[in-house]
Nucleic acid binder design. Structure first.
Lengths: 202, 202
DNA sequence: GTCTATAAGGTGATAGAC
DNA sequence: GTCTATCACCTTATAGAC
């Protein structure tokens, strides 16, 4: 068994990750996390003191996984077109594995905006090579005059939003799980082509 | 005072709308709703029996306001380009007035998918004139070959997602409230131009 | 219809044995 | 470190006076 090698703390952490991402801070129950981890409820307090502190650790880990992986990517030495392609592939893959992640994060950001400011400061998208490449492209005339933030938001909207609205999209378009995968394959291609075409042809 | 004309039931409903949209089902407190309405807590049960039933009514109203207004618009006798413009303007205006609405709705849709199926059935986007116009356009060669659902998702993503991610966007791009408004003005124009250009030029 | 008081059950947290 | 037992508080919901 793989589980035998995991420490109790790890078991709790993984269980908490699952339950909090599914139910949120207010909706999650310590008992449910304990059951999910297969251990006693008082162990949660032994290792993490309180629900609030446990949640905070889960959120920080989730948020770093969500935002932290993107900055190194934006700093790679490749063209801005390739970079757009990579960001799209990166987020689509991440969210296919973890579809509850966006809603979980955006809920908490709304409820406790302070919590994440330090992380955002450590991962400033604004100072990346990608932004510089866009600005240079605009100055040289190869890219349409547009705020770099709008480009970032366009990419994120196109890929992240479908996961936020997944239940609605699945129902309205009558998609099963396989259909969903091919819907997202189309989506990736459309977002990339549409954005690059818009940026280049003006 | 305008409030004098409102019945107790209306006062409760409006207070519940505000509190539930802000905190969600699990996070909201009946006491908080009562305080917000300026009435006694037992009145909530007198008029709506239970928290769950009160929430359901709030959600149904919110969801209908979100989805119900769009179908008539999609059936208007105007060109598909004008229709895209109108949808964007419609949602942007709705969400500027009600920025918590999308997160509220998508949370509940995730937790209780059954609740909204009947409403979605009553508001089938698939049977609208807009979808027919797109399909006809594709057949006649004036529109790029693309699934109509992808067009709908592209519009919604571009406009709705920024409100879901608002705290993050505001921080990363250092936007105050005025900046946000002009950011969304740009956003509307970009989404519309980008999509229509993509659909027409291929 | 509206209020006060209180019931009934759940939930986070801790004490203490092992 | 892990468990059982239990506390203290909170929250929904109801009973009953007015």
């Amino acid at each position: 068994m793989v589980d035998d090698k995991k420490t109790t703390e790890e078991l709790i952490f993984e269980a908490a990750l699952k339950v909090f991402q599914k139910k949120g801070l207010a909706g999650a129950r310590m008992q449910e996390i304990a059951d999910e981890a297969g251990i006693n409820k008082s162990m949660l307090h032994y290792y993490f003191r309180s629900k609030e502190l446990l949640f905070r650790q889960i959120f920080l880990k989730s948020f770093k996984g969500f935002i932290g992986s993107i900055v190194p990517l934006l700093n790679q030495e490749i063209s801005w077109e390739e970079k757009i392609h990579l960001i799209i592939e990166h987020y689509a893959a991440l969210l296919q594995r973890n579809p509850d992640l966006p809603l979980f994060i955006f809920n908490e950001l709304k409820n406790n905006p302070e919590d994440f400011i330090s992380i955002l400061k450590e991962n400033s998208v604004r100072d990346t090579l990608f932004i510089k490449q866009i600005i240079t492209g605009i100055q040289k005339g190869g890219i349409r005059r547009i705020s770099p933030q709008q480009i970032i938001v366009t990419i994120n909207s196109g890929i992240i939003f479908p996961f936020v609205a997944m239940p609605m999209i699945k129902f309205m378009a009558s998609l099963n799980d396989t259909d969903w995968d091919s819907f997202m394959e189309d989506r990736k291609r459309i977002v990339e082509e549409m954005l690059i075409k818009y940026l280049k042809e003006f």
